[in-house]
Amino acid sequence: MSAPADAAVHDFLLPESAAGKRLDKALAEALPDYSRSRLKQWLEQGALTVDEATPAPKTAVGGGERIRLIVPETPHDESVEPERMQLNIIHEDASILVLDKPAGLVMHPGAGNQSGTLQNALVAYDESLAALPRAGIVHRLDKDTSGILVVAKTFAAHKQLVDDLAERTIKREYEAVSVGVMTAGGHVDAPIDRHPVDRKKMAIREEGREAVTHYRVIHKYRAHTHIRCQLETGRTHQIRVHMAYVRFPLLGDPVYGRRLALPKDASEAFVGALRGFKRQALHAATLGLTHPETGEAMQWSAPRPADFEALLAALAADAREHGK
């Protein structure tokens, strides 16, 4: 396989110390910037060869084999069309892109959302991101959750950040408004898995994956609580499922929420403000990580969007009106 212009090429001999190891393990140690699954895929595609052959990943190596990898330049998913959109970029360097996602923006194409997603926008912003899994998206936010997230710009950065997520060294803090008045903060340690009947939902299930959420009170209102949540794990819908589990579901959550809590003698304006908030009250406020290239500790924050600020203002006004 010939290398196209500007392609990343790795050409080297496996060390003698690799003797006796499985090929996939030896490759992962020799090419730490790429995940084992990615190396396996390239081996199957012929982009990675061992002594000009493509043996099975479980094959034992003897050490000294010539490894040649031509990193494919073809997009990871050619079906994702570039679409120009305005991106609110908070930070960018050669390895990562940190941005503030608005509520309503889907992360990547899927059933019913083949276009108009963040992934489409990322591929248009930087065509090199097309070669990365989901254009470098490392972690996801629900469509109607606003806030901060990180995108990797290189394979090495993507692998490192995914590893950091798994090792729980990436800090993610959210702000939310729950229905009900909490007495104090706490934490939820309850496993999450797909709902046994409704596969679009998640649920607390004993056989699920570990999920831990810490929450603390920022401010109490007459029938709601403004809270801050910190994730230890990153399961689908985790905060929404966990807060519903402890009977403080997020205001506006169409899936895990409950009927609006309307305090006694609530004004028409306040009721209108609550009914007018058409999404779950959840915002990814802070992101902290170790830079995958420099090792520097970095942290960013995304301001609350206008609808979230208006909701808090309405809650505060109702509390003042009733002497709370």
Rank of each mutant, 00 (worst) to 15 (best):
R38N: 09
I89P: 05
E175K: 03
D164C: 00
D265M: 11
H158M: 13
G20C: 07
H291P: 09
H108R: 12
R258H: 14
A5K: 12
S115F: 07
G180A: 04
L14C: 01
I218H: 02
A19R: 11
E232G: 03
S2F: 09
G257Q: 03
R240V: 07
D11A: 13
A111Y: 08
H237A: 09
M202Q: 15
Y215A: 00
D144W: 08
L289F: 15
G272V: 01
H283Y: 08
A273F: 09
D144K: 06
G276D: 13
L311C: 11
A135V: 12
E16N: 11
K40E: 14
A223V: 03
L99I: 07
A284I: 07
T145W: 05
G288R: 00
E65I: 11
L13T: 09
D189P: 04
I218L: 15
T236H: 07
T154M: 07
Q45F: 05
T145C: 07
Y174M: 00
I218G: 00
D142H: 07
D144N: 15
R84L: 10
R258V: 08
T117D: 02
I67V: 15
V150T: 09
T290L: 11
T59Y: 11
L87Q: 03
F270K: 02
T290W: 02
V80C: 06
L118A: 04
L14T: 01
A103C: 08
T233N: 08
D144Y: 05
G104M: 07
L129W: 06
A261Q: 12
A156Q: 12
R304C: 12
D265K: 14
F270V: 04
R199G: 08
A319S: 14
D100R: 04
L149W: 02
G257E: 00
S17D: 13
V181Y: 00
A60T: 15
T169P: 02
L312K: 06
